[in-house]
Design a protein around this nucleic acid. Structure first.
Length: 426
DNA sequence: GCGATCAGCT
DNA sequence: CACAGCTGATCGC
């Protein structure tokens, strides 16, 4: 595709239409409430959550695409002035609420932009995503794949999230007298928290903004902001640290659980844990980790901290399966990372035949882009999208009341929140 | 004073 | 390392 047509998760360049895969910050960098460049297309859940992140955003720019549906769009070539039609299909990415992949099909060929995604063979959602993708492809191969290569290295290997969720429940259940804090971000890991809540019949504390997000997502009974109602609290990653845990433990016995795919990448070079000065034996995680849930990855990172391999990105084997399925002619990673900077896709070049082109990932690109395409002018998005969009827009307006002073209030609150955590334990 | 950007730190 | 993302400093308007 030529430039000036489409952008995905990239907001700096001029395009006729912009696609957003999900609301994590590294995909919205450059977006702001003052947006006026053009229509922004996303899933309905992303649209619903949008105002929490961009309070003053002009919602008339948002257009909702149903997951699993295909839409026809026409743009105009910047160079020829000719109208160019193409199809876009939205596929569940199973990464965080609202996260989608976009499949574009037109005279430019077949382009798949995964955004961040998890490809678990065992999850119902992934199976659904798989069937959506197969159906949308209709037997065709992908010409160009923009791939979430976060863990695109054979050393990254972890079990399905369902397995890890049971491990987490076991950890909590085996510390009946402890408070528990779990590190999460502003979006994602909801399924883990819900699993814990159901398995242990316990509510989960979250900070007020997160509760609002939970309510927007339709979870009304599981989460609370009252510390007195539960011993399990989900806190932002940035307020989760060894220091926090040590301070908490001066008040009350508390363990921390850090769900992440990251620490599992490491093939420890020696017996020492990272830079934490720990003396615990390192647990070498092996994916085929059929070792049972209890015994296996109870890996202590620190006296009070358990890290568990709960990842919203695909592990290496899942990426491999994904690539085998879509057989791309060429691939480009959308995530830069120094641990993979050599060329993570090197590991996958054998999967789709000799003609495959693997683009080298370059160092510091956090943006994921697809600003290519063929033509330009105004965008004619299908009518039904606009109609659907209006519905969502009304819902949003009804649910939110975000103010300007939000940031400072929030910051102060969060400082307060930590104190609450500490004093709320008695 | 505000927004955008960046360094620093989990 | 860094999944994501807050905090605080600085700069330009």
């Amino acid at each position: 595709m030529e430039k000036g047509m489409i952008s995905v998760d990239k907001w700096s360049e001029e395009s006729q239409v912009y696609f957003l895969t999900h609301l994590h910050s590294d995909h919205t960098k450059g977006l702001s409430s003052k947006w006026s460049k053009g229509p922004l297309l996303c899933s309905s859940i992303t649209a619903k959550l949008f105002p929490t992140k961009f309070p003053d955003f002009d919602l008339s720019f948002l257009q909702v695409l149903d997951i699993g549906s295909s839409y026809s769009l026409s743009l105009v070539s910047p160079t020829t002035g000719l109208e160019i039609s193409f199809q876009v299909t939205t596929i569940d990415a199973d990464h965080c609420p609202g996260a989608v992949m976009y499949l574009f099909r037109g005279e430019f060929g077949c382009i798949l932009y995964t955004g961040d995604f998890r490809w678990e063979a065992t999850s119902e959602k992934a199976l659904l995503g798989k069937s959506m993708l197969i159906k949308a492809l209709g037997g065709d191969k992908i010409d160009f794949l923009y791939l979430d290569n976060t863990y695109c290295n054979p050393s990254y290997s972890f079990p399905p999230r369902e397995v890890t969720a049971r491990q987490v429940v076991n950890i909590i259940a085996s510390h009946p007298q402890h408070d528990v804090i779990i590190a999460i971000n502003t979006l994602g890991k909801e399924d883990l928290l819900i699993h814990i809540s159901r398995a242990l019949s316990i509510k989960i504390w979250v900070w007020p903004e997160r509760l609002q997000t939970m309510h927007l997502l339709g979870f009304h009974d599981i989460f609370t902001t009252k510390t007195s109602l539960t011993r399990v609290r989900a806190v932002p990653f940035y307020s989760f640290s060894i220091n926090t845990l040590e301070e908490l433990n001066t008040m009350r016995p508390t363990i921390g659980i850090m769900p992440s795919g990251l620490p599992w990448l490491v093939r420890p070079v020696d017996e020492r844990d990272y830079s934490l000065g720990l003396s615990l034996p390192i647990f070498q995680h092996t994916t085929k980790c059929q070792e049972t849930e209890e015994s296996s990855s109870l890996r202590k990172f620190h006296q009070y901290i358990y890290t568990v391999p709960y990842s919203d990105h695909s592990c290496f084997d899942e990426i491999k399966e994904f690539i085998k399925l879509v057989c791309p002619l060429s691939i480009k990673g959308i995530v830069s990372s120094s641990s993979c900077s050599i060329d993570p896709l090197y590991y996958l070049s054998h999967l789709c035949g000799p003609n495959q082109v693997i683009e080298q990932t370059t160092k510091k690109f956090r943006t994921r882009k697809v600003d290519e395409s063929l033509e330009e002018k105004h965008v004619k998005v299908v009518k039904s999208i606009a109609v659907e969009f209006k519905k969502e827009k009304n819902m949003n307006v009804g649910c939110l009341s975000v103010r300007r002073s939000r940031v400072s209030v929030l910051r102060r609150f969060r400082r307060g929140a930590k104190i609450v955590e500490r004093s709320g334990v008695d």
